[in-house]
Write a protein that binds this DNA or RNA. Structure first.
Lengths: 201, 201
DNA sequence: GAAGCCACCAACCCGCCGGTTGGAATCGGG
DNA sequence: CCCGATTCCAACCGGCGGGTTGGTGGCTTC
Protein backbone atom coordinates (compact mmCIF):
# COMPACT_ATOMS: atom_id res chain seq x y z
CA UNK A 1 0.00 0.00 0.00
CA UNK A 2 2.89 2.30 0.50
CA UNK A 3 4.73 3.23 -2.64
CA UNK A 4 2.18 5.83 -3.68
CA UNK A 5 4.29 8.95 -3.63
CA UNK A 6 1.66 11.09 -5.32
CA UNK A 7 -0.77 10.27 -2.57
CA UNK A 8 1.62 11.21 0.22
CA UNK A 9 2.30 14.51 -1.47
CA UNK A 10 -1.41 15.14 -1.79
CA UNK A 11 -2.05 14.26 1.83
CA UNK A 12 0.62 16.69 2.91
CA UNK A 13 -0.71 19.44 0.69
CA UNK A 14 -4.25 18.92 1.95
CA UNK A 15 -3.17 19.20 5.54
CA UNK A 16 -0.88 22.11 4.75
CA UNK A 17 -3.74 24.11 3.25
CA UNK A 18 -5.66 24.02 6.50
CA UNK A 19 -2.65 24.69 8.65
CA UNK A 20 -1.26 27.57 6.60
CA UNK A 21 -4.66 29.16 6.15
CA UNK A 22 -5.20 29.03 9.89
CA UNK A 23 -1.78 30.11 11.15
CA UNK A 24 0.13 31.59 8.24
CA UNK A 25 3.55 30.74 6.87
CA UNK A 26 5.20 31.54 10.18
CA UNK A 27 2.68 30.29 12.68
CA UNK A 28 2.07 27.03 10.88
CA UNK A 29 3.72 24.06 12.55
CA UNK A 30 5.40 21.36 10.54
CA UNK A 31 4.55 18.76 13.14
CA UNK A 32 0.85 19.59 13.02
CA UNK A 33 0.80 19.35 9.24
CA UNK A 34 2.47 15.96 9.28
CA UNK A 35 0.22 14.70 12.05
CA UNK A 36 -2.94 15.89 10.30
CA UNK A 37 -1.77 14.28 7.08
CA UNK A 38 -0.93 11.04 8.85
CA UNK A 39 2.53 11.28 7.38
CA UNK A 40 5.92 11.71 8.94
CA UNK A 41 7.20 15.24 8.90
CA UNK A 42 10.54 14.35 7.38
CA UNK A 43 8.72 13.44 4.17
CA UNK A 44 8.16 17.15 3.63
CA UNK A 45 11.81 17.88 2.97
CA UNK A 46 12.50 15.49 0.11
CA UNK A 47 9.18 16.44 -1.52
CA UNK A 48 8.95 20.16 -1.05
CA UNK A 49 12.22 21.35 0.33
CA UNK A 50 11.00 23.09 3.41
CA UNK A 51 8.29 25.12 5.03
CA UNK A 52 8.36 28.09 2.69
CA UNK A 53 8.34 26.02 -0.44
CA UNK A 54 5.44 24.03 0.92
CA UNK A 55 3.56 27.26 1.45
CA UNK A 56 4.26 28.30 -2.11
CA UNK A 57 3.06 24.93 -3.39
CA UNK A 58 -0.14 25.29 -1.39
CA UNK A 59 -0.92 28.71 -2.84
CA UNK A 60 -0.13 27.52 -6.32
CA UNK A 61 -2.54 24.61 -6.10
CA UNK A 62 -5.35 26.64 -4.57
CA UNK A 63 -5.09 29.27 -7.29
CA UNK A 64 -5.30 26.67 -9.98
CA UNK A 65 -8.44 25.32 -8.40
CA UNK A 66 -9.99 28.79 -8.33
CA UNK A 67 -9.17 29.44 -11.96
CA UNK A 68 -10.84 26.21 -12.94
CA UNK A 69 -13.88 26.71 -10.73
CA UNK A 70 -15.13 30.19 -11.65
CA UNK A 71 -15.03 30.71 -15.40
CA UNK A 72 -16.28 33.89 -17.00
CA UNK A 73 -17.91 32.03 -19.84
CA UNK A 74 -20.52 29.32 -19.82
CA UNK A 75 -19.69 25.91 -21.18
CA UNK A 76 -21.47 26.85 -24.38
CA UNK A 77 -19.25 29.89 -24.88
CA UNK A 78 -21.75 32.57 -23.92
CA UNK A 79 -20.33 35.21 -21.65
CA UNK A 80 -21.54 35.37 -18.06
CA UNK A 81 -22.88 38.79 -17.20
CA UNK A 82 -20.88 40.66 -14.64
CA UNK A 83 -23.26 40.74 -11.66
CA UNK A 84 -23.78 37.03 -12.08
CA UNK A 85 -20.03 36.55 -12.20
CA UNK A 86 -19.70 38.53 -8.97
CA UNK A 87 -22.23 36.18 -7.40
CA UNK A 88 -20.17 33.19 -8.41
CA UNK A 89 -17.00 34.68 -7.05
CA UNK A 90 -18.87 35.29 -3.83
CA UNK A 91 -20.04 31.70 -3.72
CA UNK A 92 -16.58 30.39 -4.33
CA UNK A 93 -15.03 32.36 -1.50
CA UNK A 94 -17.91 31.52 0.75
CA UNK A 95 -17.34 27.82 0.10
CA UNK A 96 -13.54 28.04 0.14
CA UNK A 97 -12.58 30.48 2.85
CA UNK A 98 -9.02 29.19 2.83
CA UNK A 99 -7.97 30.88 -0.37
CA UNK A 100 -8.36 34.49 0.65
CA UNK A 101 -6.66 33.86 3.95
CA UNK A 102 -3.70 32.34 2.14
CA UNK A 103 -3.52 35.32 -0.18
CA UNK A 104 -3.63 37.68 2.75
CA UNK A 105 -0.80 35.88 4.48
CA UNK A 106 1.10 36.14 1.27
CA UNK A 107 0.36 39.84 0.97
CA UNK A 108 1.49 40.51 4.51
CA UNK A 109 4.64 38.45 4.43
CA UNK A 110 5.73 39.17 0.91
CA UNK A 111 7.96 42.05 0.06
CA UNK A 112 5.58 44.64 -1.33
CA UNK A 113 7.92 45.54 -4.15
CA UNK A 114 9.00 42.03 -5.11
CA UNK A 115 6.72 40.08 -7.40
CA UNK A 116 5.04 37.03 -5.92
CA UNK A 117 5.61 33.53 -7.20
CA UNK A 118 3.70 32.65 -10.33
CA UNK A 119 2.83 36.29 -10.94
CA UNK A 120 2.81 36.02 -14.71
CA UNK A 121 0.45 33.06 -14.67
CA UNK A 122 -1.93 34.87 -12.38
CA UNK A 123 -1.73 38.06 -14.39
CA UNK A 124 -2.55 36.14 -17.55
CA UNK A 125 -5.56 34.67 -15.83
CA UNK A 126 -6.88 38.10 -14.96
CA UNK A 127 -6.10 39.43 -18.41
CA UNK A 128 -8.47 36.80 -19.78
CA UNK A 129 -11.18 37.84 -17.37
CA UNK A 130 -10.64 41.43 -18.36
CA UNK A 131 -11.01 40.66 -22.04
CA UNK A 132 -14.17 38.74 -21.29
CA UNK A 133 -15.60 41.69 -19.41
CA UNK A 134 -14.84 44.02 -22.30
CA UNK A 135 -16.46 41.66 -24.77
CA UNK A 136 -19.51 41.15 -22.63
CA UNK A 137 -20.02 44.86 -22.08
CA UNK A 138 -19.91 45.80 -25.72
CA UNK A 139 -23.31 47.21 -26.45
CA UNK A 140 -24.68 46.11 -23.11
CA UNK A 141 -24.25 49.39 -21.29
CA UNK A 142 -27.30 51.52 -20.90
CA UNK A 143 -26.74 53.97 -23.73
CA UNK A 144 -29.69 56.04 -22.63
CA UNK A 145 -27.82 57.04 -19.52
CA UNK A 146 -25.54 60.03 -19.66
CA UNK A 147 -21.86 59.77 -18.90
CA UNK A 148 -19.13 57.37 -19.83
CA UNK A 149 -19.26 53.81 -18.55
CA UNK A 150 -16.67 52.50 -16.15
CA UNK A 151 -13.49 50.97 -17.51
CA UNK A 152 -13.46 47.16 -17.46
CA UNK A 153 -10.47 47.05 -15.09
CA UNK A 154 -12.31 49.18 -12.61
CA UNK A 155 -15.34 46.96 -12.81
CA UNK A 156 -13.37 43.81 -12.27
CA UNK A 157 -11.52 45.46 -9.42
CA UNK A 158 -14.81 46.44 -7.85
CA UNK A 159 -16.10 42.89 -8.09
CA UNK A 160 -13.08 41.48 -6.34
CA UNK A 161 -12.96 44.21 -3.72
CA UNK A 162 -16.65 44.16 -2.85
CA UNK A 163 -16.69 40.40 -2.61
CA UNK A 164 -13.31 39.99 -0.99
CA UNK A 165 -13.51 42.56 1.73
CA UNK A 166 -16.02 40.87 3.94
CA UNK A 167 -14.12 37.61 3.79
CA UNK A 168 -10.74 39.22 4.22
CA UNK A 169 -11.72 41.60 7.00
CA UNK A 170 -14.82 40.12 8.60
CA UNK A 171 -14.24 41.91 11.88
CA UNK A 172 -14.36 45.26 10.06
CA UNK A 173 -17.32 44.33 7.90
CA UNK A 174 -19.20 43.31 11.03
CA UNK A 175 -18.74 46.80 12.45
CA UNK A 176 -20.67 48.27 9.55
CA UNK A 177 -23.08 45.54 8.59
CA UNK A 178 -23.72 43.96 11.94
CA UNK A 179 -24.01 40.25 12.56
CA UNK A 180 -25.73 39.83 9.19
CA UNK A 181 -22.33 39.26 7.66
CA UNK A 182 -22.06 35.81 9.16
CA UNK A 183 -25.71 35.01 9.61
CA UNK A 184 -27.21 35.73 6.25
CA UNK A 185 -24.77 35.05 3.45
CA UNK A 186 -27.51 34.95 0.86
CA UNK A 187 -28.42 38.53 1.66
CA UNK A 188 -24.79 39.57 1.47
CA UNK A 189 -24.47 37.89 -1.88
CA UNK A 190 -27.51 39.70 -3.19
CA UNK A 191 -26.25 43.03 -1.90
CA UNK A 192 -22.90 42.63 -3.61
CA UNK A 193 -24.51 41.52 -6.86
CA UNK A 194 -26.77 44.54 -6.69
CA UNK A 195 -23.89 46.93 -6.23
CA UNK A 196 -22.01 45.44 -9.14
CA UNK A 197 -25.11 45.77 -11.28
CA UNK A 198 -25.35 49.46 -10.47
CA UNK A 199 -21.71 49.97 -11.31
CA UNK A 200 -21.99 48.05 -14.57
CA UNK A 201 -24.76 50.23 -15.94
CA UNK B 1 15.64 64.58 31.68
CA UNK B 2 14.79 61.08 32.59
CA UNK B 3 11.68 60.59 34.65
CA UNK B 4 9.38 61.02 31.67
CA UNK B 5 7.45 57.77 31.74
CA UNK B 6 4.92 58.98 29.21
CA UNK B 7 7.69 59.56 26.75
CA UNK B 8 9.18 56.09 27.12
CA UNK B 9 5.78 54.56 26.62
CA UNK B 10 5.31 56.66 23.51
CA UNK B 11 8.71 55.72 22.15
CA UNK B 12 7.89 52.07 22.62
CA UNK B 13 4.51 52.42 20.97
CA UNK B 14 5.97 54.30 18.04
CA UNK B 15 8.54 51.62 17.42
CA UNK B 16 5.99 48.89 18.00
CA UNK B 17 3.70 50.29 15.31
CA UNK B 18 6.37 49.89 12.67
CA UNK B 19 7.49 46.50 13.87
CA UNK B 20 4.02 45.00 14.23
CA UNK B 21 2.82 46.44 10.94
CA UNK B 22 5.84 44.94 9.21
CA UNK B 23 5.99 41.52 10.84
CA UNK B 24 2.72 40.93 12.64
CA UNK B 25 2.05 39.98 16.23
CA UNK B 26 4.04 36.77 15.87
CA UNK B 27 6.89 37.82 13.64
CA UNK B 28 7.56 41.04 15.52
CA UNK B 29 10.64 40.88 17.71
CA UNK B 30 10.68 42.42 21.12
CA UNK B 31 14.36 43.14 20.87
CA UNK B 32 13.93 45.05 17.62
CA UNK B 33 11.15 47.15 19.08
CA UNK B 34 13.22 48.04 22.09
CA UNK B 35 16.27 48.78 19.99
CA UNK B 36 14.31 50.97 17.57
CA UNK B 37 12.77 52.83 20.48
CA UNK B 38 16.13 53.29 22.15
CA UNK B 39 14.67 51.72 25.27
CA UNK B 40 15.44 48.56 27.13
CA UNK B 41 13.14 45.71 26.31
CA UNK B 42 12.34 44.92 29.91
CA UNK B 43 10.50 48.25 30.13
CA UNK B 44 7.80 46.70 27.97
CA UNK B 45 6.65 44.33 30.67
CA UNK B 46 5.89 46.76 33.48
CA UNK B 47 4.17 49.09 31.01
CA UNK B 48 2.23 46.82 28.73
CA UNK B 49 2.44 43.35 30.17
CA UNK B 50 3.79 41.52 27.18
CA UNK B 51 3.90 41.22 23.46
CA UNK B 52 0.21 40.62 22.85
CA UNK B 53 -0.91 43.46 25.06
CA UNK B 54 1.54 45.74 23.33
CA UNK B 55 0.01 44.77 20.02
CA UNK B 56 -3.45 45.54 21.35
CA UNK B 57 -2.27 48.91 22.63
CA UNK B 58 -0.81 49.69 19.22
CA UNK B 59 -4.06 48.93 17.40
CA UNK B 60 -6.03 50.89 19.94
CA UNK B 61 -3.93 54.00 19.46
CA UNK B 62 -3.92 53.81 15.68
CA UNK B 63 -7.68 53.49 15.56
CA UNK B 64 -8.12 56.51 17.74
CA UNK B 65 -5.92 58.49 15.40
CA UNK B 66 -8.00 57.39 12.42
CA UNK B 67 -11.26 58.33 14.08
CA UNK B 68 -9.91 61.77 14.82
CA UNK B 69 -8.40 62.29 11.39
CA UNK B 70 -11.26 61.51 9.00
CA UNK B 71 -14.50 63.02 10.22
CA UNK B 72 -17.71 62.76 8.25
CA UNK B 73 -18.67 66.31 9.01
CA UNK B 74 -16.86 69.55 8.35
CA UNK B 75 -15.79 71.72 11.23
CA UNK B 76 -18.80 73.92 10.58
CA UNK B 77 -21.16 70.99 10.96
CA UNK B 78 -22.02 70.51 7.30
CA UNK B 79 -21.98 66.89 6.19
CA UNK B 80 -19.26 65.74 3.83
CA UNK B 81 -20.69 64.16 0.74
CA UNK B 82 -19.94 60.48 0.37
CA UNK B 83 -17.60 60.44 -2.62
CA UNK B 84 -15.56 63.16 -1.00
CA UNK B 85 -15.49 61.14 2.20
CA UNK B 86 -14.25 58.13 0.23
CA UNK B 87 -11.47 60.29 -1.14
CA UNK B 88 -10.44 61.27 2.35
CA UNK B 89 -10.44 57.69 3.55
CA UNK B 90 -8.27 56.88 0.58
CA UNK B 91 -5.87 59.67 1.45
CA UNK B 92 -5.64 58.56 5.02
CA UNK B 93 -4.74 55.00 4.15
CA UNK B 94 -2.36 56.17 1.51
CA UNK B 95 -0.57 58.30 4.06
CA UNK B 96 -0.81 55.75 6.89
CA UNK B 97 -0.27 52.34 5.36
CA UNK B 98 0.37 50.87 8.80
CA UNK B 99 -3.21 50.82 9.93
CA UNK B 100 -4.67 48.45 7.40
CA UNK B 101 -1.77 46.08 7.82
CA UNK B 102 -2.34 46.01 11.55
CA UNK B 103 -6.03 45.34 11.05
CA UNK B 104 -5.23 42.53 8.65
CA UNK B 105 -2.88 40.92 11.12
CA UNK B 106 -5.62 41.22 13.67
CA UNK B 107 -8.14 39.66 11.32
CA UNK B 108 -5.85 36.75 10.53
CA UNK B 109 -4.76 36.01 14.06
CA UNK B 110 -8.00 36.71 15.83
CA UNK B 111 -10.54 34.04 16.43
CA UNK B 112 -13.18 34.72 13.80
CA UNK B 113 -16.00 34.15 16.25
CA UNK B 114 -14.57 36.00 19.20
CA UNK B 115 -15.03 39.75 19.28
CA UNK B 116 -11.90 41.84 18.97
CA UNK B 117 -10.69 44.19 21.66
CA UNK B 118 -12.51 47.48 21.82
CA UNK B 119 -15.24 46.21 19.54
CA UNK B 120 -18.00 48.28 21.08
CA UNK B 121 -16.01 51.49 20.77
CA UNK B 122 -15.30 50.78 17.12
CA UNK B 123 -18.86 49.81 16.42
CA UNK B 124 -20.07 53.05 17.96
CA UNK B 125 -17.70 54.95 15.74
CA UNK B 126 -19.14 53.33 12.63
CA UNK B 127 -22.68 53.81 13.87
CA UNK B 128 -21.99 57.53 13.89
CA UNK B 129 -20.68 57.41 10.35
CA UNK B 130 -23.73 55.47 9.33
CA UNK B 131 -26.07 58.02 10.83
CA UNK B 132 -24.17 60.77 9.06
CA UNK B 133 -24.53 58.98 5.74
CA UNK B 134 -28.26 58.60 6.24
CA UNK B 135 -28.63 62.26 7.11
CA UNK B 136 -26.53 63.42 4.19
CA UNK B 137 -28.43 61.26 1.72
CA UNK B 138 -31.85 62.48 2.68
CA UNK B 139 -33.16 64.21 -0.39
CA UNK B 140 -29.84 64.02 -2.13
CA UNK B 141 -30.52 60.90 -4.14
CA UNK B 142 -31.48 61.38 -7.72
CA UNK B 143 -35.22 61.00 -7.48
CA UNK B 144 -35.57 61.11 -11.24
CA UNK B 145 -33.85 57.76 -11.46
CA UNK B 146 -35.91 54.64 -11.14
CA UNK B 147 -35.28 52.08 -8.45
CA UNK B 148 -34.62 52.23 -4.76
CA UNK B 149 -31.38 53.75 -3.55
CA UNK B 150 -28.76 51.66 -1.79
CA UNK B 151 -28.97 51.23 1.95
CA UNK B 152 -26.53 53.41 3.91
CA UNK B 153 -24.73 50.40 5.37
CA UNK B 154 -24.07 49.06 1.92
CA UNK B 155 -22.73 52.37 0.78
CA UNK B 156 -20.39 52.70 3.71
CA UNK B 157 -19.30 49.13 3.23
CA UNK B 158 -18.57 49.84 -0.42
CA UNK B 159 -16.47 52.85 0.48
CA UNK B 160 -14.33 50.87 2.88
CA UNK B 161 -14.04 47.85 0.59
CA UNK B 162 -13.19 49.77 -2.56
CA UNK B 163 -10.63 51.90 -0.78
CA UNK B 164 -9.23 49.19 1.43
CA UNK B 165 -8.74 46.41 -1.06
CA UNK B 166 -5.87 47.86 -2.98
CA UNK B 167 -4.00 48.66 0.20
CA UNK B 168 -4.80 45.36 1.84
CA UNK B 169 -4.12 43.18 -1.18
CA UNK B 170 -1.84 45.19 -3.42
CA UNK B 171 -0.46 42.11 -5.13
CA UNK B 172 -3.98 41.13 -6.22
CA UNK B 173 -4.95 44.64 -7.22
CA UNK B 174 -1.82 44.84 -9.35
CA UNK B 175 -2.94 41.78 -11.29
CA UNK B 176 -6.03 43.62 -12.45
CA UNK B 177 -4.96 47.22 -12.56
CA UNK B 178 -1.34 46.85 -13.51
CA UNK B 179 1.49 48.89 -12.11
CA UNK B 180 -0.80 51.93 -11.96
CA UNK B 181 -1.74 50.90 -8.43
CA UNK B 182 1.58 51.99 -7.05
CA UNK B 183 2.58 54.54 -9.63
CA UNK B 184 -0.44 56.77 -9.91
CA UNK B 185 -2.25 57.04 -6.60
CA UNK B 186 -4.11 60.15 -7.72
CA UNK B 187 -5.72 58.23 -10.55
CA UNK B 188 -6.67 55.41 -8.18
CA UNK B 189 -8.20 57.89 -5.81
CA UNK B 190 -10.24 59.42 -8.60
CA UNK B 191 -11.41 56.02 -9.79
CA UNK B 192 -12.59 55.01 -6.34
CA UNK B 193 -14.34 58.32 -5.79
CA UNK B 194 -16.04 57.90 -9.15
CA UNK B 195 -17.30 54.44 -8.30
CA UNK B 196 -18.69 55.62 -4.99
CA UNK B 197 -20.44 58.49 -6.75
CA UNK B 198 -22.12 56.05 -9.11
CA UNK B 199 -23.25 53.89 -6.23
CA UNK B 200 -24.54 56.84 -4.24
CA UNK B 201 -26.85 58.05 -6.99
C1' DG C 1 20.06 62.45 52.86
C1' DA C 2 17.05 58.65 52.83
C1' DA C 3 13.48 56.32 50.34
C1' DG C 4 11.58 54.91 46.12
C1' DC C 5 10.80 54.64 41.49
C1' DC C 6 12.83 54.58 36.76
C1' DA C 7 16.01 53.20 33.56
C1' DC C 8 20.09 50.73 31.84
C1' DC C 9 23.01 46.60 31.17
C1' DA C 10 23.94 41.92 30.84
C1' DA C 11 23.33 37.72 31.35
C1' DC C 12 20.34 33.91 31.93
C1' DC C 13 16.38 30.35 31.60
C1' DC C 14 13.48 27.62 29.10
C1' DG C 15 10.43 26.07 25.78
C1' DC C 16 9.59 25.76 21.02
C1' DC C 17 10.37 24.45 16.42
C1' DG C 18 12.57 23.71 11.78
C1' DG C 19 15.36 20.58 10.17
C1' DT C 20 18.51 16.30 10.48
C1' DT C 21 19.98 11.71 11.22
C1' DG C 22 20.20 6.70 11.81
C1' DG C 23 17.94 2.58 11.87
C1' DA C 24 14.34 -0.68 10.81
C1' DA C 25 10.38 -2.21 8.23
C1' DT C 26 7.98 -2.37 3.55
C1' DC C 27 7.29 -2.64 -1.19
C1' DG C 28 8.22 -2.54 -6.14
C1' DG C 29 11.05 -3.98 -10.24
C1' DG C 30 14.50 -7.00 -12.33
C1' DC D 1 15.46 -13.03 -4.09
C1' DC D 2 17.89 -9.00 -3.94
C1' DC D 3 18.47 -4.03 -4.92
C1' DG D 4 16.85 0.47 -4.40
C1' DA D 5 13.56 3.62 -3.18
C1' DT D 6 9.76 4.79 0.32
C1' DT D 7 8.07 5.23 4.60
C1' DC D 8 7.95 5.20 9.60
C1' DC D 9 9.83 5.96 14.16
C1' DA D 10 12.50 8.21 17.51
C1' DA D 11 15.68 10.78 19.05
C1' DC D 12 18.50 14.64 18.49
C1' DC D 13 20.60 19.38 17.39
C1' DG D 14 20.89 24.12 17.37
C1' DG D 15 19.15 28.50 17.15
C1' DC D 16 15.88 31.69 18.35
C1' DG D 17 13.13 34.50 21.21
C1' DG D 18 9.84 35.86 25.03
C1' DG D 19 10.33 36.77 29.43
C1' DT D 20 13.05 37.13 33.98
C1' DT D 21 16.48 38.50 37.20
C1' DG D 22 20.16 40.81 39.75
C1' DG D 23 22.89 44.54 40.02
C1' DT D 24 23.99 49.65 39.26
C1' DG D 25 23.13 54.39 38.87
C1' DG D 26 20.15 58.46 38.38
C1' DC D 27 16.25 61.46 39.33
C1' DT D 28 12.42 63.18 42.33
C1' DT D 29 10.13 63.67 46.54
C1' DC D 30 9.78 64.19 51.35
Amino acid sequence: MAWDTAKTKRLLLDAAVDEFAAYGPEGARIDRIAAAAGVNKERIYPYFGGKRQLFAAVIQRELEQLAAAVPMEEADGRAVDLPEYAGRVFDYHHDHPHLLRLLQWEALYGDAAAPVAGEERRAAHYAEKLAAVSRARRGEVDSARAGVPLAPEELLYAVVALVGWQFAAPQLARMILGAAVDEDPAARRAAVVDMVRRLAL
